[in-house]
Design a protein around this nucleic acid. Structure first.
Lengths: 353, 353
DNA sequence: TTGAAAGCGCTACCAG
DNA sequence: CTGGTAGCGCTTTCAA
């Protein structure tokens, strides 16, 4: 049920008559042309500062003035329809709340891409995941797509996007996808790094806090695998510890801590680490004496707790760098997809381990 | 410098010849029509499940199959150009990093709007603010705009958006804007609430932590004004305390704390409160004995510190509610802009005050 | 230096 | 029941 603007002219007039715009409608370049007494072509030339044609200065002024008076704003969709290509980079929004680090990274990326004259759009495709979502994204005909790993975009989805004109499809996440450039954030490395630290401190019964948000599962599993690998090398035990981000859940976990016999914990993030640490301390379990705790993200707040929180810092790829990859790929779409590992990992040892 | 796809046919052939698509190009509804042996109109009817016309079942099947085989994806821009209206709700992205609460709220809003069949797009307009940005937004011809107060959208910007076809412009922030619906988040109330709590606890020399991010200034100032108002009523003193979100800055602030003689602090957020509290404790200043501390946001982490952080909880409008306002306004654009106060404020007293 | 006109992909009228 | 076709707003080639 679409609503078409009121245009009551039902007479069988020849269609080529330039219609008089009713006053309420949004002004088009034709309106500007009429007002300035020139053709639409001239309007386009002037407003786009076309260099290939010379337009006299008085005409330019008249056009610009008419545009200003009418409050003319060009229609981006019409423009890119005509051009056959937009400069829109689509970044699917994460389907669930994610960390502050993520938001900062994407904010920076937006900024860097804007500098390269791309229009960055975050598009929330509620509910849909993976290849279904790709169809919705493809309708927008983005010139590039930067998809966080969370979306579980598969090879089919990548193909859909490319067929619909996307010149660059870049995934950022733990696993590469056939056909797309991949910025590999190797979360296994995060787990490995934390685990090796705990093992070096003599811990042999490791717990791994697994957040319950499904959106984080892909990262959590990758990190867990890293821990497992490191632990296997020295024959240490690994226990999964599912934990909702709530005080009561943490208290429950802490309640039967002694039975578990865990002496070193790798939490999914600093926030989970702090949550658990507080619950442990409330139960009289000493950190790090009884149980060492390691988080991820190097949040400011981790430094404020006592004991100060040991953490794994992830050095994300610079937004600038990623923006340049997007731009390069858009300009030379022929190059075969690369897989680059872009996650530097550093352990920041503090007092909790 | 636009790049037009390779179409080398330079012959002066009559233009009405339906061009054969080269294989690499992205398939259009015309391609589907050709393949199914029907007209473009029929394709449109079938793929949009048009009820006004009856299409035979075999034809439907043929069309759908052809679309699937070609990997046809409709072109959203072309569609809304034709329709004269899109269902895109534009949410300008904040120009600077903001809190987790904000992200959660916008995530929920996205979801609620998607349920109402709107396409939600977060658009990063790097650098531009206020009415400049409005021009960029207007090019996208959104049917509605939900703008956080941070963007300092003025009456002129609202007018531009409306003239370009936006049927609903809704600002969310501390001050209403002429011509737009306003969801007033009265941050003065936040400051007032915190200040009255501190005053009731007998504090008479209040400090107000002001974050240095310019993007937060509009909120910080509103909250400060609330504190001032409450303090004036009982003749208490108010000092502004600029603070960057860094440990060293907090340490500097704590260093000359005794000279300041501040006995109660209202921090901009829980995060700033925790930062300051840690610095104060490091200097041997007792909280709350020497100085009481109140934050904002009721973050989980504030409950984990000792002393537990007193905080002001903001009850944001439910995303559902806001989404319905958007929808209602889009459908009845005539209604005059409303100003609604949607920020409930509750003080959560804990141990730090 | 300017204008006429084609056409990007799509949908909705109106005829057959 | 299906097809032809006009036209949404814009850019760009070609002709004047």
């Amino acid at each position: 049920m679409r609503h078409i603007p009121e245009e009551p002219e039902a007479q069988g007039a020849p269609p080529r008559v330039p219609r008089q715009r009713s006053t309420g409608a949004v002004p088009t370049s034709a309106d500007v042309a009429r007002r300035a007494g020139v053709s639409r072509a001239t309007v386009s030339y002037v407003l786009n500062n076309a260099t290939a044609v010379r337009i006299s200065e008085p005409t330019r002024r008249r056009v610009r003035e008419a545009a200003r008076e009418l409050g003319y704003v060009p229609h981006a969709a019409a423009r890119s329809l005509r051009a056959g290509q937009s400069r829109m980079v689509l970044m699917p929004a994460p389907g669930a709340p994610v960390g502050a680090l993520y938001h900062r990274f994407f904010h920076d990326l937006q900024w860097a891409l804007s500098r390269l004259d791309y229009t960055v759009v975050q598009y929330g495709s509620a509910g849909l995941t993976g290849d279904e979502a790709a169809l919705a994204w493809a309708e927008l005909r983005p010139v590039a797509v930067v998809a966080p790993g969370i979306h579980e975009l598969g090879p089919a989805g990548v193909a859909v996007l490319k067929r619909s004109g996307a010149r660059a499809v870049i995934t950022v996440g733990p696993c590469p996808v056939e056909g797309a450039h991949a910025l590999l954030t190797d979360h296994g490395e995060v787990g490995r790094c934390a685990a090796e630290h705990l093992l070096a401190r003599g811990r042999r019964r490791l717990g791994v806090v697994m957040p319950e948000q499904p959106a984080l599962a892909v990262y959590a599993r990758a990190r867990l695998a890293g821990v497992r690998a490191a632990a296997a090398r020295v024959g240490a035990e690994v226990t999964e510890l599912p934990l909702a981000y709530e005080e009561t859940a943490a208290a429950r976990l802490a309640a039967d801590w002694p039975e578990r016999g865990v002496d070193g914990v790798f939490a999914y993030s600093d926030e989970y680490a702090m949550l658990l640490m507080a619950a442990l301390q409330d139960r009289g379990i000493r950190v790090p004496a009884d149980t060492a705790v390691v988080g991820v993200d190097d949040l400011m707040l981790g430094r404020l707790l006592r004991p100060r929180l040991t953490t794994v810092r992830m050095d994300l790829p610079s937004a600038q760098e990623l923006a340049e990859l997007v731009d390069r790929t858009v300009r030379h779409p022929g190059t075969s997809p690369t897989v680059r590992d872009l996650l530097g990992v550093t352990l920041v040892a503090r007092e909790s381990s």
